[in-house]
Design a protein around this nucleic acid. Structure first.
Lengths: 119, 119
DNA sequence: AATATAATTGAAAAGTTGTTCAACTATGTT
DNA sequence: AACATAGTTGAACAACTTTTCAATTATATT
């Protein structure tokens, strides 16, 4: 009853119908990688506070370091990741670099998260 | 011009007004920890595929293992984390354990994510 | 009662992430 | 021109995460 569909799994397939249906509807793996990587940006305590702060005000690296009580280096490393993920923009003004959220979508994402944890 | 507000940061505060305003409006740190932990659950390629699959159909561990071409052990470890985070429910039927999403909120969260990556 | 299978578990191994440190670049000030 | 400061960078380290492996539990079948 039931036979293995692949080499890695050590199971008999009990519900071949279900697995087939879900398998056929499954989006391309690159979508899941992109989605996991997007949420990874929101999954760190430091980064999520930076996102929140930038949703309130444009801030420079130094301001964020003071606000979060961390070194400029630590903040700068995180901002770089957020920049590479296209979630924040930066603008240089003299010696300082000001950061802002890339778009309102970013704000929406963590506002939905807040809604979820407060219920 | 500006003086250090703390010991860790090596900066003069350039924009004390901004930092003060944001600092005063800042939610309690436990909210940020909770939010980061919530998003952490969605930040892994395996887990996000499990969430997606369960948003389509109730499935047992074995089904998920076949669907995602992974061992039951790996799937089971991830499901445990998802259970501890109250994001999935499980129900035992005979030898099998069936998993479902804990609520529609979970589905909403990654559907918003999909909306973001497709633009 | 013995056997087979679905699922779980703990520990080890492999891989990833976040912060620190020291060095460096770029800009503004004296 | 020399100096101070804002920010960035790469490497090292510590902490954490994910998968694998072997052993175990619980249920169903013979």
């Amino acid at each position: 009853m039931g036979k293995n569909l692949n080499l890695i799994c050590d199971c008999d397939v009990i519900h071949e119908e279900i697995v087939r249906r879900v398998s056929e509807a499954m989006p391309d793996s690159k979508n899941f990688h992109a989605l996991a990587n997007l949420y990874k940006m929101f999954s760190d305590y430091t980064r999520i506070r930076i996102f929140w702060a930038l949703s309130r005000e444009e801030m420079c690296v130094c301001d964020l370091a003071v606000l979060l009580d961390m070194t400029k280096s630590a903040i700068s490393h995180q901002l770089k990741l957020m920049r590479l993920a296209n979630l924040v923009k930066h603008e240089k003004k003299g010696k300082m670099v000001f950061y802002t959220l890339a778009d309102n979508h970013v704000k929406d994402i963590f506002e939905q998260g807040f809604a979820h944890i407060q219920e």
